[in-house]
């Protein structure tokens, strides 16, 4: 599904935070990427989500070589990857209700007619009530907002889901609930998962295999 080869990326060409990294995620596979904070794994996740152009390296997504990132990537390619970030507060447009938040990708892709049905389908899955859907981000808790962000990532039925520290700010019960939602979706759709995080116990329990971030660059780690 996803193949990253010799990826070098960062915010300053002279000091890349990701250097010569290999990473692959098979179809339907759940891979956990483990690393200490500030090691560049979030940057790698953004590269994989087509949100950050790497300085060097090649990336293949669903058998197609990626030629551009962000708006230079075709819409179908961008929407084939769903992303959930660490901080729900920053990943939600503060002016939108949770319902609108979840519906945004449908509206962006000209599928507004599907909004009522799709939101009605996803809301109970992530555990959001009708009343919560009408609220804006400032009126809900971190956990509730992250549920909405996960629903937004799933609304276009992506073939690959990237969760960047999705549960780092959340309590144990909400963490387990969100992981269960992801796994339900994967079981039904066969989607692949790249879960990025620093919690070894969590990722080992959640994923088929985990890859460890090395001292300066990720080496390929055998399956297991």
């Amino acid at each position: 599904m996803l193949e990253l080869t010799r990826i070098t990326a960062g915010y300053d060409r002279r000091a890349p935070v990701v250097r010569d990294v290999f990473l692959s995620v098979g179809y339907g596979e759940a891979v956990g990427l483990l690393g200490p904070s500030g090691c560049g794994k979030s940057t790698l996740a953004k590269v994989a989500a087509l949100l950050h152009r790497p300085d060097a390296g090649t990336m293949t997504l669903d058998g197609t070589v990626v030629r551009g990132w962000r708006h230079r990537a075709p819409q179908e390619q961008r929407t084939a990857v769903g992303v959930v970030f660490q901080q729900p507060r920053l990943s939600a447009d503060p002016r939108l209700s949770l319902r609108e938040l979840i519906a945004q990708p449908l509206r962006s892709t000209g599928r507004r007619r599907e909004v009522p049905a799709r939101v009605a389908e996803l809301a109970p899955l992530v555990g959001l009530s009708e009343e919560l859907l009408e609220r804006r981000p400032h009126a809900v808790s971190d956990g509730q907002l992250q549920r909405a962000c996960l629903a937004r990532a799933l609304v276009l039925r992506p073939g690959l889901l990237i969760c960047d520290e999705m549960t780092a700010m959340l309590d144990a019960s909400t963490t387990a609930a969100l992981v269960a939602v992801v796994e339900t979706y994967r079981a039904e759709s066969g989607a692949a998962l790249l879960a990025v995080g620093h919690d070894r116990v969590l990722l080992e329990r959640w994923c088929d295999r985990t890859v460890r971030w090395g001292e300066r660059s990720v080496e390929r780690v055998p399956v297991g």
């Binding site: 555990g127 956990g143 509730q144 309590d171 144990a172 019960s173 909400t174 963490t175 387990a176 609930a177 992981v179 269960a180 919690d199 116990v201 969590l202 080992e204 329990r205 959640w206």
Partner: peptide
């Protein structure tokens, strides 16, 4: 008890509801 059971090293099962 629910909170502890939700830990990934235990049952990894969420408490239903919010």
């Amino acid at each position: 008890k629910g909170l502890l059971d939700a830990l990934p090293e235990r049952d990894f099962a969420p408490i239903p509801g919010m």
